[in-house]
Amino acid sequence: MRSQSRIAFYLLLTPLVLWLGLLIIIPHIDMLLISLRERISFGVYETSLTQYEKALTEPLYLRTFARTAVMSVLATAITLLIAFPVAYYIAKMAKGRLQQVLFMLCLIPFYVSELVRTFGWMILLRETGIISNLLQWTGLADQPVELLYTDATMMVGLVYTSMLFMVVPLVTTLESLDDSVVEAGYDLGGNGLSVLREIIIPHAMPGIVSGCIVVFMLSLGNYLTPTMLGGKDSLWFTEMIYNQFIVRSNWELGAAFGFMLLLLSSVIVWGMLRLTGRTLKETMG
């Protein structure tokens, strides 16, 4: 009986171990090894830190790296600012059917692929697009307006793409906030701002942190949105990784970039948890 349950345990564990091992750990080790070598000539490689040295000394790579990080943090902050009132409305003010409908509205954009959604933005914002035509028709603009290919457009796209992943954890944590706790906050003399700061936000903190982590990771790892909406000035670290791997066939530098990105996201997530005094276990558990 005991040995049977042990067998069952290992059988159940096997897929997880295989998944982690084959798809995550082994490829990462392989990537690490690739990032640590240098091409000498055809098929001849040597172990060295040249790739990391190159990544850290070339101003272009560093700038892109920093830009990607800063823009992702900004996108996360904007997403939080927009998603919080939305989530609060869905969780606390909307009732019954309206609540479900609003939640569905947040979900519907994700029924289509990211590519299609991004094309949707392009149709709206391009020079011969809907908004440009609308502006001309209403007389607000006297010539076609190009709304694509700017950092602001890219930011709009990133925020839009990330919205759901912020709203869902926020709605979940805010729903668990007892209405009477908020009322007690007012009853004991609090105003809107202090109730928000002392009661609602501390309560929603697990949702805020996990939402921010997910959105930050998504933005950092996004490839389509920066490339398509950002246009000629879009410079995103994932694009550089893609370029090194696919276009340049320079897997060594690409792998080094990949590890820098992994490190960056780990550091920022760790920093976010430290800043809010939470552990990963509390946030994800």
Binding site: L235, M240, N243, R248, N250
Partner: peptide, 15 residues
Amino acid sequence: EAIEGDVLDRVQAAN
């Protein structure tokens, strides 16, 4: 291609 790659990266990053 490495030379070209660096040129393309710099052009893309230029302001």
